[in-house]
Design a protein around this nucleic acid. Structure first.
Lengths: 219, 219
DNA sequence: CGGCATCCGTGACGATACTG
DNA sequence: CAGTATCGTCACGGATGCCG
């Protein structure tokens, strides 16, 4: 987002990095992809960011029209930040980043965790397991619960359980990581009990008898 | 690449940004995706980078095993930098960034240009126009020539003409931008003469009678 | 308490000069 | 050609203060 420090390259990649290449910017987008959030929520789910940088980045996102600032009506007077359609289209960028970084997910003792951070890398394997079927999946980890909105939305995912989810999946963080890295398929996870699927909807049954009985190989 | 300034988030996206999120890093990868390059070449095709930052980033990429440093044998004693397979897998990240930034490609007078910077955003429309067919396409712009390696490689693209290319395309930068933004299909470009395709290979004929006679709509 | 603005110390960055 | 050295500047992180 450095208006002052632009690359000044006539190149599509450099242009994008001019807008969202600043430190913290894409992680703020990661949070806003979960839906409208307040300043304090953002600050809580972006451990390590300083208050002034968060404020500055939000202003930048607003100026670039990737996010908008709204004042909620009387009952709960609050300010929320929300992605514009243009901002929502950064999802493929975040997905590509998450897919590359998935295999490097080694837990360090100093690392912070939020359940919904698993949402982005899970979107691809679960979308494939659902065979293009739409619906909302609640995912319950020890760290907390979030939901994925397949084929619908936006937002593509959100914190906490979704409203009237079609399926609920319960699994551990370790199992989740295995799914993300492609070491375990959804079908295998269900079969071995590592992934517990509950619900009687079409989507639930689809996930239970998901294709790809053996884990997809990485090579 | 901030080992000292890590986000320390247990999140696949944040992990990737820890490694390649530093200023200039992904643009260096953009250059190295074109194949092995010397320090001086990199410096020439990354206008604005300072010599010490380039040296530091190359060291970082080497340490993270995304790039390797090789000393060329006697005839032309030089040092070249080359992406490792792990580094080459950043292509989808660069592609996603380029796709998002394509529509924002407005030429500013201060912008530098290199012909091969058009390669990344052209990969998708031309891969589609080729219908999954493999081959090497030379692309000649006023700014210079580069080549795309569809379905083969790596490297996925390179500066200058490719060795024994299957097709040669000639077009202006403006036409190129239209293709990138999806405002013009390859077939339309050929039909109107904005895109000149020469060569008698299968790939050449495929591009001439490419599908999608009307430009693909963005919605 | 939510939503910032201000101040300050440190480190990253950019420009230039210089060297093996 | 392939960097290293130096230096001024600015962005970042942390703490604190302010205001509705």
């Amino acid at each position: 987002m450095p208006r002052r420090r632009s690359y000044d390259h006539y190149c599509a990649t450099a242009r994008t990095l001019d807008v969202v290449g600043d430190r913290w910017t894409l992680l703020i987008v990661r949070e806003l992809l979960a839906g409208p959030r307040r300043y304090t929520d953002l600050h809580a789910d972006l451990p390590g960011i300083s208050t002034d940088v968060l404020a500055a980045r939000l202003k930048d996102l607003e100026r670039e029209e990737l996010a908008s600032r709204h004042r909620l009506p009387p009952p709960a007077p609050a300010v929320v930040y929300e992605l514009t359609p243009q901002g929502q289209q950064l999802l493929p960028v975040l997905t590509a980043l998450a897919e590359w970084g998935g295999p490097a997910l080694v837990r360090k003792p100093t690392d912070a965790v939020r359940a919904h951070w698993y949402a982005l890398p899970l979107l691809k394997p679960l979308t494939e397991a659902a065979g293009g079927y739409s619906g909302v999946i609640d995912v319950a980890l020890d760290e907390g619960t979030f939901h994925l909105r397949l084929g619908g939305g936006p937002p593509p995912y959100g914190d906490g359980p979704g409203e009237q989810a079609d399926v609920r999946m319960a699994l551990t963080a370790v199992t989740c990581t295995a799914l993300i890295e492609g070491k375990l398929s959804v079908a295998e996870g269900v079969k071995t009990g590592l992934v517990q699927v509950s619900g009687e909807t079409n989507l639930a049954n689809l996930l239970r008898r998901a294709p790809g009985g053996s884990p997809s190989r990485s090579e």
